[in-house]
Design a protein around this nucleic acid. Structure first.
Lengths: 210, 210
DNA sequence: TGTACATCAGTGAACGCGCGTTCACTGATGTAC
DNA sequence: TGTACATCAGTGAACGCGCGTTCACTGATGTAC
């Protein structure tokens, strides 16, 4: 899971029928986006990478925008899965579990900055897709549940929601700054994990109260 | 300053010589980017808006990328100015001054989401421009100085740097989430200013210590 | 103050390019009998 | 098990389009004398 995109290769096709062009197209776009930036992808080039004519993708996607939505949706799924896996590595209710969710988030951004930017930085009309919004909520839900467990409150408690939002803002901003390399945590002499634990403890512990 | 882009209009040209095409191009791109998203701009369309032939911009910019850099640089300047203005509305060294810097940042993002995304979301090669990096550092410097004043420590103190980075992460993430409307602070029943003051107090006060 | 001329900031036509998308088509697959 | 046929997932050629950029040009401006 979350293998580095550069390590992935779109396999050459052998049969006339592709098998799973939809998935291959998404993989090809991921590759492209990591190489040429979030807006450096075209249907034609992605089809070429998938070893297919430029018309073929239209058997699986209505148009360019739908391909994009497919990529973002798939990325959201992987992101949520990574967050859940992160949470599961520490005892439920621990601050470390919360920090691990944050680490998974930052790692995703660092491993696939192009896709991350595509999902959160651009807004080419996919912003109001109900499916993608739902996936976004699902990812947020992971943070909410961890925060709730940690605070010993129900997930729909306003304080839990507020804390979860703070945590997400934090990690989201850190992710962007890191991949923009505007600043690195390294430059502040704190290490990533310690940083996240400190922040989680600060927000969930005695520290910040809305 | 920081007037809403939609309210701005690129004035029709009268004379043969334009006067200040460079600035007009930047204004036109800002308009375009707010209307069509961070990647929805073209040299041709911007020139059209400025009431000029599509070749004219090349008298002022080497190529498309340089126009982009111009827009981002100008935006960075305005952002820093807004942050400084925010800080100046409260006593030096107060937590409120720090929160006001954050509010200026978020307000900028909210007022000009397209430009904000252009500056921070895309990375079409302008990421390593030394000029833009310097402007980014200048903006960060505002946060650092306010944090230093608040903590009573010199600006180059590691703790100050760490706090400033945390504050920036936070505000940066909040800005992105807000304009993506993934989540609104409103949905957590906290108001924006109270939120920023709480966060600033939490990070700079007894709360989070790296 | 008036003229000559260098420089500057535009024009508009043209270029080659790659794109998104459509179209009529064809080869492969799976199902009914 | 074998054949007929509907469906599916490709092809490849073509379309119109807008783009970024160049080019030789020209009108306006400012300076030297």
């Amino acid at each position: 899971m979350t293998e580095h995109p550069a390590a992935r290769t779109v396999p050459a096709r052998t049969a006339y029928h592709h098998g799973d062009l939809r998935a291959q197209m998404i993989a090809a776009v991921r590759d492209l986006v990591e190489t040429h930036g979030p807006d450096g992808f075209s249907v034609a080039e992605a089809a070429r990478r998938a070893g297919v004519s430029s018309a073929a993708p239209y058997k699986h996607f209505r148009d360019r925008a739908e391909i994009l939505r497919g990529v973002v949706g798939e990325a959201m799924d992987r992101l949520r899965a990574a967050m859940e896996a992160g949470a599961a590595t520490y005892p439920a209710g621990s601050v470390e579990a919360v920090a691990a969710v944050g680490l998974a988030y930052v790692s995703f951004a660092r491993t696939e900055p192009g896709v991350f930017r595509l999902a959160f930085g651009l807004t080419e009309g996919h912003e109001n897709d109900p499916d993608l919004r739902a996936k976004g909520e699902d990812a947020f839900g992971v943070v909410v549940r961890c925060a709730a467990a940690c605070l010993g409150l129900p997930p729909d408690d306003p304080h839990v929601q507020a804390c979860a939002y703070m945590l997400w803002s934090f990690v989201h901003g850190h992710s962007f700054l890191t991949i923009d390399s505007k600043r690195s945590v390294a430059s502040t002499s704190i290490d990533d994990w310690a940083y996240l634990v400190t922040v989680a403890r600060g927000i969930l512990g005695q520290g910040i109260r809305a």
